[in-house]
Design a protein around this nucleic acid. Structure first.
Lengths: 262, 262
DNA sequence: AAGTGGTCTAGACCACCAT
DNA sequence: TGGTGGTCTAGACCACTTA
């Protein structure tokens, strides 16, 4: 189970996910071993177990009940074309689509080098400076469900790869991978903005839906550790086929002093 | 600054939010005191400071950079009609609207007792059993931006309040408050599903937008500590005026072994 | 080299829930 | 009353960045 260079908590997360999936960890009613029991089994401190459980809870995988125990969240498994936890995780889209459809495919429409233009502001570039852009479609069950456009400043690409940047991007598994391999940067965090939009002619054609059909639009900018933008993404999800599922906890009472409305 | 019955971490969160807002905590470039310094100032252990900082980071308020320091997220403040962090928090909608417009108003359209019907499944009720339902509009700058429908099983309402449940719900600040006051339950967590949808005739009229305008639809079910559903909510956000803003971190690598696509 | 955040430990006490 | 998760401590070492 051990992965080099992964924290103990991360290793415990992966092991627990695996054992939850195979059904060897939880009781029939979903009850998991207690934190003390888990810390004995994994030979780590209880604090480390709690670190792992906190992330699994945030991801909606488990439910913790004080004085009772920790349970697997049965309402969270066995889903349709749902994107779960994506808002918190900043990892590749395709992985989340595969979570509900292991046969999901990514299909590159186009990749090329072009001026930054309309995304210059987001990426903190001059409008005339060059970027590598890619357009993809994600298919689930053979049906296009997500359209995705990613843009990376060409100035970030290592000198030896600038010439073939478009081609390399086309071959990369994701923007994350391209940035790691050919720009020697890592994504530190992303800021995203989610809205509703209507399918225009181009998107309707690509996503095989009607003109004016409802779409979820997620715009995102990724930053490296120096807080410099490393990529821009514009994603459109078919509103009738895709849903974002989240588990929300009344933990942080940020801003207002009392939890009130609804 | 102290609030009774609040954890030290929670108190630190509120204090830091206040000091960040007033500008007395961060340096001009946004750098906050180190964790060690904060633990001295608040007279708590570093672990407790980190607990608070983790939640502020998740909420997108601060950015932590290993080896450098902790900074306020300047891109996160000074927003429009944005809903920030709502996916993680499970608190009242109105508070989040007020976050970007302190003049925001809630306006009750209707509240009544009716059969569960179409929401019976979500609430684990018989279709014929009674529920208290409320419909609200949230206005920002005088413009309706969110339509919200909440449903609570009448069986949860304390016997003495059943008769006037509709009226009491109308007077309550939120579904959370109604449930706490008149049902003696607390929300343990919520499951939500976000999609894109089009405005039908009714919603177009209420939200003062065109028929077929894009809307964000968030459907949610809240559960108490015993994992019994306590309320159902169906919220529609005007796609042109409201956006969900999130900060995503590549922390949890759940499911896939490598962070890959985009 | 010095300072930062990231990880981890061993132990303590509390609030809550079951019995 | 015993077991659970929730909170908190004091200390240690590591990885990373900056100077």
């Amino acid at each position: 189970m051990v992965r080099r260079n992964a924290s103990l908590a991360q290793q415990i997360i992966l092991e627990m996910l695996s054992e939850i999936k195979s059904g060897t960890m939880a009781r029939d009613d979903g009850l998991l071993p207690s934190e003390t029991e888990l810390s004995r089994r994994f030979e780590v401190s209880r604090a480390t177990v709690r670190e792992a459980l906190s992330k699994l809870e945030m991801a909606g995988v488990i439910i913790r009940r004080q004085g009772v125990g920790t349970f697997v969240n049965s309402r969270s498994s066995g889903q349709r074309a749902a994107v779960r936890g994506w808002f918190d995780e900043a990892t590749a889209l395709i992985d989340f689509v595969r979570d509900s459809d292991s046969q999901a495919q990514a299909q590159v429409i186009e990749s090329r080098i072009r001026p930054a233009n309309e995304v210059a502001g987001c990426l903190e570039l001059e409008p005339a400076s060059s970027v590598v852009a890619i357009e993809k479609l994600f298919l689930s069950g053979g049906i296009p469900v997500i359209h995705c456009a990613n843009v990376i400043p060409l100035s970030l690409v290592e000198p030896g790869s600038v010439e073939k940047a478009a081609e390399l991007f086309r071959g990369a598994e994701s923007a994350y991978q391209f940035i790691a391999h050919y720009c020697h940067h890592r994504v530190h965090h992303q800021q995203s903005e989610t809205r509703a939009a209507l399918a225009d002619e181009k998107l309707a054609h690509l996503l095989q839906c009607q003109l004016g059909a409802p779409l979820l639009r997620v715009e995102e900018v990724a930053y490296n550790a120096e807080l410099r933008p490393v990529f821009y993404g514009l994603n459109h999800f078919r509103g009738d086929l895709v849903a974002f599922r989240q588990v929300r906890h009344p933990a942080l009472t940020i801003g207002p002093l009392a939890a009130t409305p609804g």
